[in-house]
Design a binder for these strands. Structure first.
Lengths: 219, 219
DNA sequence: ACCTGAACACCGTTCAAGT
DNA sequence: ACCTGAACACCGTTCAAGT
């Protein structure tokens, strides 16, 4: 009978119709914390806005009272930071995996990171908006920057440095400066496609290849 | 005595300490509407988010009861659309003026539009976020697109077509496609500088010039 | 014709209290 | 140790009522 509704555990987290969850015993506090974070992440994916997410709806989805959230998080911002940290981790691992799969060539690695970045954003538009356009990120001491931004920029700058040393770039720009330019380009592609879906933007992979080769001065 | 407080009318619109405004007589309904729109615009500039703006705070700023807003707007979304329309108008006029000042040369006109776009966004970050990252714009039948996006893209595509006919571009891309690429680039520059202010992005005008010349294949 | 007070269901957060 | 009900000040929106 339970097999009639597949993916029941996932539904339990996200469904607002869930009413109660059984009282936890002593050591189970951390399990509730995890359930709150993943329920918040699921709701944020749908809403695409940290402001639209209500702490009470997260509590309802988990099947717990609203004040229970405060047992694990200082306030709503604190919960959002926890979710954002997980999301930045996922994005970083995705980019690193794409670069590793691209092999030894530094130019191929940079292109692979650009492709993976845009693909992640378009696959998770709500999460992308929370990380890059949410109110939280402007108010806080940039937790995502230390956790994601700096290493991501340095990885690309490192590849670009090697590419320049091998005479692969047609330009004399600093690698760090080029990395920032590339980030702005792929962010523009991703953000505008998410926020203005009414326009026929064309294939994102094609645009990444076109823009990055031109900005880097590649043959 | 009145000269002691300069710009008093503007303060009256934006200050939350204003309590009451005198009752309007018969024909003055439209004046209230205008005051509501400009008060909302002033608050949006500070908040940078359509969700964060509360209709009740707009009413307080104008010195009127919350239900009075409904005499002129169907709901909060309707008010936001009115504000966004004004902002898109302002942006469009700014870009047209910049292109006109650049003179006859189509390449110079495109560069001037790009420079003006980024400059407007960085000068009005809160308004830029409302127009390009707000929840409203994804939910509605894209009012900003017909009012701003299409003509703006066509103006740039027209200039690019003339530039291509004169042999000024180093690439064979369609003008419309190039215009969309440029929009994504300048949006990325603007949005990332607004949302990630902790990074040293460098001079925006320099970056616009660098990116546009490379993407267009200019000498 | 123009505007408001009171009410409803929501929200984030706190705090005393229950198991 | 883990969790909740009730309360507070906010919010968008409605509606009957006042000038």
């Amino acid at each position: 009978l339970t097999a009639v509704k597949p993916n029941a555990t996932l539904q339990r987290v996200t469904s607002a119709s869930e009413r109660r969850r059984p009282r936890a015993s002593k050591g189970e506090g951390d399990r509730l914390r995890g359930e709150i974070v993943s329920a918040a992440a699921a709701l944020l994916a749908r809403m695409g806005s940290d402001e639209a997410l209500s702490l009470r709806s997260v509590a309802r989805a988990v099947g717990v009272s609203a004040p229970s959230v405060y047992l694990h998080f200082a306030d709503k911002d604190d919960l959002l930071v926890a979710v954002a940290t997980d999301l930045f981790d996922d994005l970083r691992h995705t980019l690193d995996a794409a670069a590793a799969e691209a092999g030894e060539d530094p130019v191929a690695a940079v292109l692979a990171r650009g492709q993976a970045y845009v693909a992640w954003g378009l696959a998770h538009p709500g999460h992308y908006k929370v990380l890059y356009e949410g109110v939280l990120m402007r108010r806080l001491p940039a937790p995502g920057l230390k956790a994601f931004g700096r290493p991501a920029l340095q990885a690309i700058a490192g590849d670009l440095g090697r590419a320049a040393a091998a005479g692969r770039l047609g330009l004399a720009d600093e690698p760090e400066e080029l990395a920032r330019l590339l980030w702005q380009v792929v962010h523009g592609m991703t953000s505008l496609r998410i926020n203005k879906p009414g326009i026929d933007w064309g294939d994102p992979q094609t645009d990444v290849a076109r823009l990055l080769t031109r900005v880097l001065g590649l043959a």
